[in-house]
Amino acid sequence: MTFIANAVQRSDNPRVQSTGPSSLDSSDRLARNLGWFSIGLGITQIVAARSLSRTLGIPESENLIRAFGAREIASGMLTLSLEKKAGLYSRIAGDALDLAVLSTAVKEDNPKRGNAAMALAMVAGVTLLDVAAALGVSRNNARDPHDERDYSDRSGFPKGVQAARRQAEDADEKPVKALSPPQTAFSGQRA
């Protein structure tokens, strides 16, 4: 990242010498990786639906795999957006569908049931990652509803609101015409 930052910056801007702590935490990074994985998997499912369905021993499900691919792409985009929590939960829902379909493929009469079982195990593993990322993102970005602060003592008016109102009345604050020259002449040299 340091190389990219320095490569794209104007030559007269400061150079990044070493990079420090980021606002992205581990669950954000995991969510980002899962988002890209989702899009990659979705494209693969759409492009290679026929070979995937045959590999899994469910040739009749070719169109279903394509539909799942579209769903993966949509979930991936959502996961890569600021609404990543919604994206991750949509991925978990999608994982449940995948697991349901793959479990029907792991049956005695499917000659490719070994492949289906392996796919089932992989989806289960990814589901665990999705759950971990969703919980992490939810926890780290949550606003504690019980953590309300009372700022009713912060008026900003050292003499109080009523004094500020009285002052406005006494001073007969004239509205400043927004398009007229500045109310106060600019000096730039004050104090």
Binding site: R15, V16, Q17, G20, P21, S22, S23, L24, L82
Partner: peptide, 11 residues
């Protein structure tokens, strides 16, 4: 450095 990625760097 990108979306949601602000870092405290040495520059």
């Amino acid at each position: 450095h990108g979306k949601e990625d602000i870092r405290c760097d040495t520059v």
